[in-house]
Design a protein around this nucleic acid. Sequence first.
DNA 1: CTTACTAAACAAC
DNA 2: GTTGTTTAGTAAG
Length: 621
Amino acid sequence: MEEENLPPIDPDFEPQSRPRSCTWPLPRPDISAVKAGGGDGSESAAGTPPTEEDKHELQPIISEPEKVAVSEGGAVAGVGGATPRKGSSRRNAWGNQSYADLISQAIENSPEKRLTLAQIYDWMVKTVPYFKDKGDSNSSAGWKNSIRHNLSLHNKFLRVHNESTGKSSWWMLNPEGGKTGKAPRRRAASMDNSSKLLKSRLRAKQTKKQAGAAGIGGSGGALQGEGASGPGSADSPGPPGQFGKWGVNSNSPSSRGSLDDPDMWTSFRPRTSSNASTLSGRLSPIATGQEEEDDLPEDGLLGGYSTGNLPPTLMEELDLIDGLTLMTGSQGGASPSTAPPAPPQPLPSASTLLPRGSSFPSFRQLQQSQATQGSTPPGPQSSVQPSARSSTSPSSFGNSLFSPLPGPGHSGFSTHVPSSLEVLLTSDSPPPSDVMMTQMDPLMPSQEGGGLLGLGGSMSSNQAKAGQMLLRKGIDTSTVGQMSLRPQPQLQHSQMGFGMMHPAMSQEPPQLSTVKTQHQVPGAGLLQHGTVLSPGGNGGLQGLGQFATPPFFMPSQDRLPTDLDIDMFTENLDCDVEYIINNDFMDGDLDDFNFDPIIQGGQGYTGPATTQSSSHNWVPS
DNA sequence: CTTACTAAACAAC
DNA sequence: GTTGTTTAGTAAG
């Protein structure tokens, strides 16, 4: 039974007879030999399970929608897709697939689309002939090490904290993660030599001081009780998630950064700390915008806000999330029904837009962030996530579409897409499909603004600012009302915007909260996660998004951790605001502000808002 | 140069 | 001992 999946593995799959444990690398040359040789079917030995081969490689379980999203990722699994292999010969003893491919398949095939390390091992053993024997004992060491290594190394794999028991984390596919052929590799060593050394040394030293942190209370995790039917699965905890975690206190020294909670992050990747400098560190919302961290000295830019506060924590936060399980696969994707808007496009978004480097690294961070957040919300069900991934894909969209800003997508836009889905799904609530979709959409749009901003955050900030301004100033309420259905929300929204703006910040939280709330949006229903990806949706979405957005925030807003951050930012905002006021408003450009679109949306869903038009105007100059 | 596999050191649990 | 992360060496394309 378990085998459920068919292993998409190559037909060749048979284990090659290799001498011992052989995990060692086959000499690639073999390939040719092998192949050339004629296939050598040499391997005779193995019992090859021929059957599977027939099946497609991957189309297995999932229906389609998902695939889209994942597909690429999936493709990964798919094998061919990911890496261009010649196809013919087998690169490894087990076939052409790389470890990463195998892992991807394993995950994809799992019902939940997530597996624990042990489950992955299991899958390998069960599914891949080559590993059959190696399941236990020493022989396993090598390949298992490789599996672990791959999981950690590739961006395409996300690690989600598994609360249930002491289990190990869930590993999921990053929807966009591996994406296009490119590599999903996390940047590893780019550091300078010197730094490396230091690092290593530091590492050794790093003691972890964390407080015990231990308790993670939440349970949020797995939504699906099912758990993986698979092998080990029993883990899924029954209880839906309730998280209750954000404890919030802070002990840590960090300055106000809201994020600091040591506890929160603690458990997660302490080690990274040293790394902080490298990738993770960057997470900080702040800087991110540029992602580039490498070069940039953070200080300069950030100086203001600083970094000081936001330590690497974000990343850690992510981990916390755990709750995110995602079901994306089946469900999310599933409802293609309406999908119209969302064209199936592969959107290269990220890849295209971004320079590779940035994307991934950031991605990871994002992931984590997202994870973390999941747990946060004490709220009713809001599973809010404050996350940081905001800049994600949507942003990219924005760019592409509007391309107002010069700013590149630096922010890490990676792809939170999945996450959002996940989130939605995750939220224990029975997810009304509609809702989900809706959410997604909205996000996009909203983000678009925000995300884009990578640069200065100008856009979104502006909007937000504008909103605030208006409110503060008492500008016509009516106006305001229009802008967003509810003024207050608007405010928040605006604030959020700020927060979000930062690169790191993500909108997710809002989304989540949103979920249930409102969504009457007509069109919205249509959108799906796909939307996120697809640009096509945008237009419509935006409109929706905008108006939708505000409301979303309402519910959740209260206490997102993010909020704290917001405060921080706020100050900055103020400045800007005024600036803006002086400039823009004074000029009379008010119109320019996006409000227009918003208004439309707000008022009626009447039309598809054409948001686009307005959007750029106010762009910062 | 990039991608991938392996080995291994470390850290945290 | 397991799980995760990271570094390093090596090999192939």
